[in-house]
Design a protein around this nucleic acid. Sequence first.
DNA 1: CAGGATCCAAGATGATACTG
DNA 2: CAGTATCATCTTGGATCCTG
Lengths: 118, 118
Amino acid sequence: MVDPRPFDVFATDCPSRSVLDHVTSRWGALTLAALRPGPRRFNDVARAIGGISDRMLSQTLKTLEGDGLVVRDEQPGGQRVEYALTPEGERIADATRHLIDALYEVMPTLLAPRSAGA
Amino acid sequence: MVDPRPFDVFATDCPSRSVLDHVTSRWGALTLAALRPGPRRFNDVARAIGGISDRMLSQTLKTLEGDGLVVRDEQPGGQRVEYALTPEGERIADATRHLIDALYEVMPTLLAPRSAGA
DNA sequence: CAGGATCCAAGATGATACTG
DNA sequence: CAGTATCATCTTGGATCCTG
């Protein structure tokens, strides 16, 4: 039986490293987080994420789709396309959501003028 | 009483957004993960993270230090400097660790040749 | 609506050399 | 050891225009 965990994000050549890079890319985490509530259309995602351009969203979605974290559902007719998380995408999106929540929790402290002791 | 959670990473101008950007920067997550086991010296961190250059590590550490997630401890004498996580940094590092673990869990599926149904 | 193609500026990153 | 300074480069990201 092989090692069930041969992955190592610290290694440049590990496949998990590239997926991590995509997930932690500038728009990756936010895109996954935006899709977590459920399938969404392109422009809805674009509007949900402040500052993202069509180009970057398109590119990010493609990368995540290539990784198997997102699926593109094109309704017949063409005028309507929805993006959704795959089961694996959901696991990752949940984790990024936790990260964001942790961030919210520590933000007040980070913003505090450094030390209450001084 | 003010809203205890006025933060929104989806908003371009929210402070939490920039911290998220730093944490999910190319080397941010890996750097935090590398420091999670405990304080480490510069070159040890550098060696732990495959592919990072001195320059990038230095820059990443400074950014995270500026956010209040990392502290720099310089031992008198100068030849020895250690980097450690602040309590807030630990919370974030834990979250990124969970993200990495989630990644490890789904990797086998992501690598599988697409579908067992075809 | 849902993007693709192009052009271009800005920032990220790396290699190397140098310092205290 | 623990970085910093410089330079060249490669990628990222945005704005704009175009198509089905």
